[in-house]
Design a protein around this nucleic acid. Structure first.
Lengths: 146, 146
DNA sequence: CAATTTAAGGACTTTTTTATCCTTTATTGT
DNA sequence: ACAATAAAGGATAAAAAAGTCCTTAAATTG
């Protein structure tokens, strides 16, 4: 469903949100450890997300990645399409060049419903809200370390 | 959502079903043309599906791929998991090694609902039924050629 | 201002997916 | 039996995704 890059990206951004709730910036290495992802790859993904303004970054000592009020509006949908594009929600799922209501592929109408469901779930909560749930202990970002 | 191999496989098998409804076997080349997929790649995928008994094949003149009563039970779910595996329905969508009701990832409960929906839609119709809809003209397998 | 810290950027490697090609094997019709 | 036909199998090539490494640039602190 999601590429590896996207999985790492989702976990990383939620982790940044969790840390930013208490005002802390976090470095790529710390993020990678806590979301159980390869560090250089995670750094690349974050680089891209900074360019796309989904998270902020600060160089130098005590720098790192962070989020603030200006990032509160973003949902998983924004994050997923920033990393994986919107192939999950648009275009023909069987790759037909012409696929429409008038000329539907065999999966057209059923896939449409599934996609609406996916889209709804990806837009329902903001990334910040997902982080609050991690903060609460309702959900987790990696296997709990002894 | 589906790999290229899976997209080609789905279209190819439905095409085989359509042709088998009127008793005709079809060769890899004909299939590839009609589902708008690369021929040798399509042939490879079909090879695999024959091993997995989702379609039948016959060598020699007038041979080709076909389906019969013994293949009627198969659904898209069977086909998709034969080609892409069941990563779409199982395992943590964020790649957590431990992800369960007690220890859920941030997407766990929502993804579960989506997956149930996906699973429902993939099991709702058999491949034969999808072929009947193509036969009816309700749906199509490729852009209509002149 | 110098040393240190941390992200940014670019080049590169590895693995997986996608795709092609050629040879072999089985089947059929003559 | 023989020629023709079509799938099976294996080897290989190309492209994309995943992952690494090294250098550069920016910011901070003493």
């Amino acid at each position: 469903m999601f590429s590896k890059a996207c999985q790492y990206g989702i976990k990383a951004v939620i982790y940044i949100w969790v840390q930013s709730l208490s005002g802390a910036r976090v470095g790529a290495k710390e993020i990678a450890v806590h979301v159980d992802a390869p560090e250089p790859f995670t750094a690349k993904i974050l680089q891209d997300l900074v360019r796309k303004k989904i998270v902020g970054s600060q160089k130098g000592p005590n720098g790192g990645f962070y989020v603030d009020k200006s990032h509160e509006k973003f949902t998983l949908k924004d994050l997923v399409s920033a990393i994986d594009g919107d192939g999950l929600f648009s275009g023909c799922s069987l790759g037909l060049r012409e696929c429409s209501e008038e000329n539907p592929c065999p999966l057209h109408s059923e896939i449409k419903k599934v996609r609406n469901h996916v889209l709804e779930m990806l837009t329902k909560k903001t990334l910040r809200e997902l982080a609050l749930e991690v903060n609460n202990g309702e959900t987790v970002l990696s296997r709990l370390i002894g």
